[in-house]
Design a protein around this nucleic acid. Structure first.
Length: 616
RNA sequence: GCCGACGUAGCUCAACGGUAGAGCAUCUGAUUUGUAAUCAGACGGUUGGGGGUUCGAUUCCCUCCGUCGGCUCCA
């Protein structure tokens, strides 16, 4: 009896698409075990939906091979929300091709061809895949003597499986776009043509996801940046270089003020450093060896080479080194909103999220080794405190370990990795280990913040550095009167102000909380009769420290309300005959909620309450 | 950087080998208006830059710049 027959017997044939036999995922076509645990896997199951998406990729590849027999197949896994498949073709697919492929997929789904598994020796498989060089290459790399193949209709693919019982069980899918992708993700390899698709169990879920994509588009910080006049990038200035317009600049200034205030409170000393330095500084720091591909070319000055800074650390180190330090002075914490410049390949630039010039909310901590654990622990605390103030309370945390290209000794790396791990464990934070993803000078904790739509953004980073102290001879005098090596921590909480601001814009869809809003209150008059009192109200709000603007134009109230709403101003207050007579204002919240008329004093109280503690 | 698509008025988009058009914004006038758009008129473009094909290019070709979707990389 096969699992399929067993499923029929148990009345599960309609929902089961695979089975977990003693914890191992299997096709329904295989023989049911005489004993052992069988669990049915459905498309509701995370494993099940992945199988379905993977099978959809096969169906797509089958459709492509029918329409474009000369296309060479490569690989096509399931991914979040869907799947992709990479092909080697002479001419990349056009949107019209995608439409045809999608239709052909429909035919294959309607045909409900079974997915048939065949286990063959590698030699037999090689014979079947002659003319498919990528499959031959994959086969050559498989150590096992036998491999599994899956056939659906006329399409045969090398695959581990499992798969749906038949193509008829494929759910709702849609081909989205094509993209270039290197074979095996290596830029030295040939560029393939990738087709991305999304796939869900039900049409309704697919529609929901398409709706989500619309929402993402609406929140795009590049669109909102233009609509709300927050920032721009400009051809004549150059790609990846940001112009902060007045409204964006207000938000940035508030972010910076908050940051400075809290850092002073947390025991940091605020410093400033220049944007360029002699190239030798970067030779000593190791940047020239390990970071050169991210640096702009040197600048010749009176026969000497200077370098635009990609990081702030060497400067802070020099401040530390400007005098002798006692063990009693540590930890020394230098913080700077330091603007750095990094060469990023043009194809990677993206609005505010990936730029060539950005300001890090950087700090460097100089510690004794006995202070490392405690400092990292309180740093995690501080980081989460700052992030929460901006409305982020969900995170993905990664611990990145030693990369291939690194400076320092493996022993020191291990020590640092241990220290980071201990702090995370003590703080009770769950995290993933990212092997080999550390920076060249040390391991790090990265905190990705999750926005309202659940997307994760890399912002905060805490990096231990055992390298620079050696290179720059960063030392302190211990209680034994001898010189000791200090440990350094690099850290940024918001990461880059540009990226963090971009994330903020998307998180709030441009509707910033009151404390961050570029304009907090719009004062709208009904007719010319009310302008005088309107000016008075604007002046009173400004005198109290709020960002208020008056709209005294000769327009209908509805027109002004609409504009205020589109500008996402938190409060619009209406002033007409009634308000002038009673010396009151009628506030309306962004979103339409109408509040009762109150005196200006009372309204100020409302604002004060809403901005205290910088409520997100 | 690589692959593909794209670049038309301040913005969003039409036209597509035959001297470029709409809506919104802006400006002017009228209207004095009560919670998401009052009406009318005017202004606005060497169609991203350069080169080529053609009697003629926004349209076809080349090249450069930039943007977008990915890949590689990353705050």
């Amino acid at each position: 009896m096969t699992l399929m027959e067993l499923a029929e017997h148990e009345g599960k044939a309609k929902v089961a698409i695979a089975a977990r036999v003693d914890g191992v995922l299997r096709d329904l076509a295989v023989r049911a075990p005489a004993e052992g645990k069988v669990e049915w896997v459905t498309v509701q199951d995370p494993d099940g939906i992945e199988i379905m998406r993977h099978s959809t990729a096969h169906v797509m590849a089958a459709a492509v091979k029918e329409l474009f027999p000369e296309a060479k197949i490569t690989i096509g896994p399931a991914i979040e929300n869907g799947f992709y498949y990479d092909f080697d073709v002479e001419e990349p697919f056009t949107p019209e091709d995608l439409k045809r492929i999608e239709e052909k997929m429909g035919e294959i789904v309607r045909a409900a061809d079974p997915f048939l598994r065949e286990d063959l020796s590698k030699e037999e498989a090689l014979a079947l895949f002659s003319g498919e060089p990528y499959k031959e290459e994959l086969l050559a790399d498989i150590p096992d003597p036998t491999v599994s193949l899956y056939r659906v209709g006329n399409f045969l693919d090398l695959c581990r499986g499992p798969h749906l019982p038949s193509s008829g069980r494929v759910g709702a899918y849609k081909l989205m776009n094509t993209a270039g992708a290197y074979w095996r993700g290596d830029s030295r390899n040939r560029m393939l043509t990738r087709i991305y698709g999304i796939a869900f169990a039900k049409k309704k879920e697919l529609d929901l996801h398409l709706h989500l994509l619309e929402e993402v588009k609406k929140r795009d910080h590049r669109r909102l940046g233009k609509e709300l006049d927050l920032f721009s990038v400009n051809d004549e200035i150059g790609p990846g270089l940001i112009l902060w317009h007045p409204k964006g600049a207000i938000v940035r200034r508030i972010m910076e003020d908050f940051w400075r205030e809290e850092h002073a409170r947390a025991g940091y000393d605020l410093v400033f450093s220049p944007h360029i330095a002699r190239i030798d500084l970067w030779r000593v720091s190791g940047h020239l060896d390990y970071y050169r591909q991210s640096m702009f070319s040197a600048i010749g000055v009176e026969g000497q080479d200077y370098q635009l800074k990609p990081m702030n650390c060497p400067f802070h180190i020099q401040i530390y080194k400007s005098r002798m330090r006692s063990y009693r002075d540590l930890p020394v914490r230098y913080a700077e909103l330091g603007t750095v410049y990094r060469y990023e390949p043009s194809g990677t630039l993206h609005g505010l999220m990936r730029v060539r010039g950005f300001t890090q909310d950087d700090a460097h901590l100089f510690l004794r080794s006995d202070q490392l654990d405690e400092e990292i622990f309180s740093l995690l605390d501080f980081t989460l405190f700052v992030l929460r103030r901006f409305g982020f309370d969900r995170y993905e945390i990664f611990l990145s370990t030693r990369p291939e290209k690194y400076a320092g000794t493996p022993e020191n790396w291990a020590k640092a990795e241990e220290a980071l791990k201990r702090a995370l464990d003590r703080k009770g934070l769950s995290y993933e280990v990212d092997p080999g993803e550390g920076v060249f000078y040390g391991p790090k904790i990265d905190i990705k913040i999750k926005d309202v739509l659940g997307r994760a953004w890399q912002c905060s980073t805490i990096q231990v550095d055992f390298n620079n102290p050696d290179r720059f001879d960063v030392a302190f005098i211990g209680d034994d009167g001898a010189e000791h090596r200090a440990i350094m921590i690099h850290r940024a909480l918001m990461g880059s102000l540009e990226r963090f601001f971009g994330v903020l814009v998307e998180h709030y869809a441009g509707a910033f909380p009151l404390w961050l809003s570029p304009v907090q209150v719009d004062v709208l008059t009904v007719t010319d009769r009310h302008v005088e009192y309107g000016r008075e109200v604007v002046a009173a709000l400004r005198a109290a420290g709020y960002r208020a603007e008056g709209d005294f134009r000769n327009e209908k109230l509805g027109y002004k309300i609409r504009e205020s709403q589109l500008d996402k101003v938190p409060y619009a207050i209406v002033i007409g005959d009634r308000e002038v007579t009673d010396r009151k204002v009628s506030p309306r919240r962004r979103g339409g909620e109408q509040l009762p008329p109150v005196s200006v004093e009372e309204f100020l109280g409302t604002l004060r309450k809403e901005t205290e503690n910088r409520k997100p």
